[in-house]
Computed example of a mutant assay.
Amino acid sequence: MEYVDKSMEGRPFVSKIKWPRDPELKLQIRRLHSLFTIKDSAVNVPRNLDTRRRLEFFTNSLFMNMPRPQPVREMLSFSVLTPYYYSETVLYSINELLKKTEDGISILFYLQKIYPSILAFMFNE
């Protein structure tokens, strides 16, 4: 007598499916099956509107088309000045801006390369 699996009875195409032997592919099929069969994920939506907005933004960003990054040797380097006090203002004098470093380049030159549109607006160029 031939063994018949009763749990597969009434399901079309079950006998015609050839399951893969590759363990990685089997794992992906199991994950896909769990995505289609587990229904409690819709119940776990956060109630807080700001949390939902942030999660939606994050998940949408996973699918955006990202531009190819430049090679590191073509990227601009930059420095960040962090004031020690909250209300401390960081200002350079004109002499400090024009003074050349040991590389022969001034701070003003760096700022012009990093922020060309802002400096053009400030100096009406």
Rank of each mutant, 00 (worst) to 15 (best):
V4S: 03
V4L: 00
V4H: 03
V4A: 01
K6N: 05
S7H: 06
M8F: 02
E9P: 03
R11T: 05
P12D: 04
F13H: 12
F13W: 10
K16C: 04
I17L: 08
W19N: 05
P23L: 01
L25D: 00
L25M: 01
L25H: 00
K26F: 00
K26M: 13
K26R: 15
L27H: 11
L27N: 10
Q28L: 12
R30M: 10
L32V: 10
L32S: 11
L35F: 11
F36G: 09
T37A: 04
I38C: 08
K39Q: 06
K39W: 00
K39D: 07
D40N: 05
S41D: 03
S41K: 11
A42N: 02
V45I: 12
T51R: 00
R54W: 06
E56D: 06
E56W: 00
F57E: 09
F58S: 07
F58V: 03
T59I: 10
T59Q: 00
N60M: 02
S61G: 02
L62C: 07
L62E: 04
N65W: 05
N65V: 04
M66P: 02
R68G: 01
R68E: 09
P69K: 13
P69D: 08
Q70E: 12
P71T: 11
R73P: 08
E74R: 14
M75E: 13
L76M: 12
S77L: 05
F78T: 11
L81R: 15
L81H: 08
T82N: 06
P83F: 08
Y86C: 01
S87T: 09
S87F: 07
S87M: 02
V90D: 01
L91W: 03
L91H: 08
Y92Q: 08
Y92C: 09
I94E: 14
E96T: 05
E96W: 02
L97Q: 05
L98R: 15
L98D: 15
K100Q: 13
T101K: 06
E102P: 03
S106L: 10
I107V: 14
I107R: 15
I107C: 09
L108V: 03
F109V: 05
F109D: 12
F109K: 14
Y110Q: 12
Q112M: 10
Q112A: 07
Q112C: 12
K113F: 00
Y115W: 07
Y115Q: 08
P116G: 13
S117A: 14
I118V: 13
L119S: 09
L119P: 03
M122Y: 12
M122S: 05
M122L: 14
M122F: 11
N124T: 10
E125P: 07
